[in-house]
């Protein structure tokens, strides 16, 4: 089995996790910038974080033969302070040309507030100017459906951004159809208590089809499992699905979306055939 985990916060994981993921067949992973569990007190803290995402983590991943890519932004949980968020956003362009950067992410909404929405729109402007891919975080629990709709509207208000270059993550049964019908890609996050379980993700694939959908672990410092993508593959196999169909979902789909980013396209062939990162 080979797979890509397109959403994994490896800065919060141990080296053992890299090894387990490699053993399970992980060829590449992508790491969106996110909330550290506390608010950083300066934009310089983000500069350090962006350095970690663009130099330290790729080196750790390389040790286990995994290609590492990243996405940059200030996450919606720290976007309520608009002045601070703008300071951080000024730092982003200097990192966008680094060789593992795929685009802007994970931007989005958390509590669906006006300030969060303003910062989302400003991130989308950067993505439009840079013609970069976008990875979107949708709100948790009771805020998800409303937030997903507000996010899709914000993207539509940027006509230069093609929905086919935007992945809306953490979809569940009440948001997945609207996301796919809007021409966006959808990500299913496999978590033990919130978001999707492996079984529900398999149900969604059986009922909504496999086009423009991927699965990720979103493993971070909270309850999460870095092996949740291969675990879901096992669930699909136990249901009798063909290995080729499973490969389509856990490898070819993320390849198809991600190779729209030049940084990924450059290494897509290597990832496809299983060459190790240089």
């Amino acid at each position: 089995m080979r797979y890509i985990d397109p959403h994994a916060h490896m800065v919060s994981r141990t080296t053992d996790d890299y090894e387990k993921m490699a053993l399970a067949g992980c060829r590449a992973l992508t790491e969106p910038a996110f909330w550290a569990g506390y608010d950083r007190c300066s934009a310089e803290g983000f500069r350090d974080y962006f350095n970690q995402l663009t130099s330290i983590e790729p080196a750790r991943a390389r040790t286990y033969g995994i290609h590492h890519f990243t996405w940059l932004c200030i996450n919606p949980k720290e976007a309520e302070d608009v002045g601070f968020a703008r300071e951080v956003m000024q730092v982003i362009p200097e990192f966008l040309s680094r060789d593992n950067v795929l685009g802007i992410g994970e931007i989005g909404l958390n509590k669906n507030s006006k300030n969060e929405l303003r910062i989302l729109e400003e991130h989308l402007e950067i993505a439009a100017q840079q013609q970069s891919l976008v990875l979107v975080h949708t709100p948790h629990l009771e805020d998800k459906q409303k937030g997903t709709r507000l996010i899709m509207e914000a993207v539509r208000n940027q006509p230069s951004i093609d929905p086919g270059r935007v992945l809306i993550d953490h979809v569940e049964e009440h948001t997945v159809k609207e996301v796919l019908d809007g021409g966006f890609w959808g990500g299913m996050t496999l978590y033990p208590d919130t978001k999707c379980t492996a079984k529900r993700a398999a149900d969604i694939l059986e009922t909504c089809g496999t086009e423009r959908l991927w699965m990720n672990s979103a493993c971070d410092w909270g309850p999460s499992n870095p092996l949740s993508v291969p675990t879901a593959a096992l669930e699909l196999r136990a249901r009798g699905h063909h290995p080729e169909a499973i490969d389509h979902v856990i490898f070819k789909n993320p390849m198809a979306f991600l190779r729209q980013a030049p940084a990924f396209a450059q290494r897509a062939e290597d990832i496809d055939v299983g060459h190790l990162p240089e």
């Binding site: 909330w35 949980k77 309520e80 958390n110 509590k111 669906n112 507030s113 006006k114 300030n115 969060e116 929405l117 507000l150």
Partner: peptide
């Protein structure tokens, strides 16, 4: 959208 995020 709500006027202000009440927390996280």
């Amino acid at each position: 959208p709500i006027p202000q995020a009440p927390g996280k």
